[in-house]
Simulated assay, not measured.
Amino acid sequence: MSSRRAYRSDLTDARWALIEPTLTAWRAVRRGPETAARVHHLREIVNAILYVCRTGIGWEYLPHDFLPYETVYDYYAK
């Protein structure tokens, strides 16, 4: 997990515990043998998506302490 300061839109530990198994399984199914190992934590990706949805900002305006907006948007689009 990252050491960034939490945003109000971040998932609580309890909410993450509810959705983490489903997202981990989804990622495992989408991951083929030719896919490189995942570098980013799913929770940080979800937190970034929630930040964009909650604030209404454009993807390219995602604060710098989140992951690259292209990565976050790619997961959102999938």
Rank of each mutant, 00 (worst) to 15 (best):
E44I: 03
R5A: 12
S2M: 10
R5D: 10
V46T: 02
T35N: 12
D65F: 08
A77D: 15
N47E: 06
A37Q: 10
A48N: 04
L67G: 05
Y7G: 01
R31C: 12
L18H: 14
Y76A: 15
A37P: 04
L67D: 00
E60I: 09
R27Y: 00
A48I: 01
A25Y: 04
T22P: 01
V46S: 00
A25R: 03
A17S: 12
D10R: 03
Y51M: 05
R4M: 12
V39H: 12
P21R: 11
A25C: 10
E70I: 08
R54V: 07
G32Q: 13
G56K: 07
Y73K: 15
E34R: 13
L42K: 01
L23W: 03
P68N: 15
R31K: 14
A28P: 05
D65V: 13
E34V: 05
Y51R: 00
W26H: 10
K78I: 08
L23Q: 00
A6L: 15
Y76G: 11
V46A: 03
A17Y: 14
T22I: 09
R43Y: 04
R8C: 01
T55K: 02
V29D: 06
R31L: 09
L67W: 06
L11M: 13
W59V: 06
D65L: 13
R8P: 02
E34I: 01
A6N: 13
Y61G: 02
V39L: 05
D13T: 08
N47V: 00
H40I: 05
R43S: 01
T24D: 06
T12A: 07
L67E: 07
C53E: 08
W16F: 07
A25F: 06
A28E: 12
R43E: 02
R5K: 13
G58W: 11
T24H: 07
Y61P: 01
R54E: 08
K78P: 09
D74V: 06
L18M: 15
I57T: 14
H64G: 14
E70A: 13
E20P: 11
W59P: 03
I49K: 03
F66M: 07
W16H: 07
R27A: 09
V29C: 02
L50N: 06
